[in-house]
Write a protein that binds this DNA or RNA. Structure first.
Length: 276
DNA sequence: ATGGTCGCCGAGCGA
């Protein structure tokens, strides 16, 4: 007979780009109270530490770790179990001061899981007016190369880990409402997709597509042009699992409910369940 | 439809 773990039977881990945690606070707190994830990985906080609504989140039973930045970016890990921060930036470029990565080990008990909240650069525009590659696209590709290098190191630990967040990559045309329109977008460019595939080829499992081999489901809908009403969406929010985490994968879904509410983020949460 | 919408902050950028 196995000892009881701190988790219970199933561990729920969700990722959500909230597009300003301050503007989104009512949406975030109601979602946490209803869905009750064990771990929530948030992106685009758009605030520094002193602007984060820490008390409101802690009141719902969460420990909070964040890497903040004024106006842009910002990532957080919320965990009901204790968490130990491992990194507040993606290694590989000390000059990169954008708050796009935080990594922690959650659940110091029987079966800890390493998690990272990732806000991968958008990468648009891809080209300058003269046709040369734009620095924003180059930065995205360099950032992906750094993520690949870091993931290689993590895999050597044989830890159960989950790298989740807004990857700003549509892995295939299944993940785009209009693949022709987006063919030259940084979210769909071959260079972006090739690096995403490299991550998977290291041995990581993209949870949603592993459990849903076909079908168009999206995690982001632009605020403009009635995109939500027309389901003109993109699937760019992903959870990538190490082999030890993938062995425990029990479920994955996109929760469209928050996107349909008033004052919604343009992204909606994606979650997984890991068996204990 | 050569616009359209958000959130930052308080003009214009980023998405």
């Amino acid at each position: 007979m196995r000892a009881l773990s701190v988790w219970g039977k199933i561990l729920k881990i969700a990722t959500w780009n909230v597009n300003s945690v301050k503007a989104r606070l009512p949406r975030v707190t109601e979602w946490l109270a209803e869905f009750k994830p064990d771990v929530a990985l948030l992106q685009e906080l758009k605030c520094q530490e002193d602007g984060f609504p820490r008390l409101e989140i802690e009141d719902l039973g969460y420990n909070v770790a964040m890497a903040g930045q004024k106006t842009y970016n910002g990532v957080a890990i919320l965990s009901k179990a204790p968490l130990e921060v491992e990194l507040t930036a993606l290694p590989g470029d000390d000059a990169d001061d954008q708050a796009r990565y935080i990594e922690a080990v959650v659940g110091a008990g029987e079966r800890p899981v390493r998690v990272a909240s990732i806000y991968l650069p958008n990468g648009n525009p891809t080209r300058n007016d003269d046709g040369s590659d734009h620095e924003k696209f180059a930065y995205k590709l360099r950032w992906m190369d750094r993520l690949i290098a870091h993931a290689k190191g993590l895999l050597k630990t044989e830890d159960a880990f989950v790298l989740a967040g807004d990857y700003n990559v549509c892995p295939t045309d299944l993940d785009v409402y209009d693949p022709v329109k987006f063919a030259d977008d940084a979210l769909c460019r071959p260079e972006s997709r090739a690096r995403f595939r490299t991550l998977l080829n290291l041995g990581l499992t993209e949870a949603f597509r592993a459990l849903n081999p076909g079908g168009h489901q999206y995690s982001y809908w632009d605020y403009q042009a009635g995109a939500w009403a027309k389901d003109n969406g993109l699937r760019i929010d992903h959870l990538l699992l190490s082999p030890q985490a993938a062995d425990r994968l029990a479920g994955c879904a996109i929760d469209k409910t928050p996107r349909g509410k008033e004052k919604a983020s343009d992204h909606t949460p994606v979650w997984i369940e890991l068996a204990d």
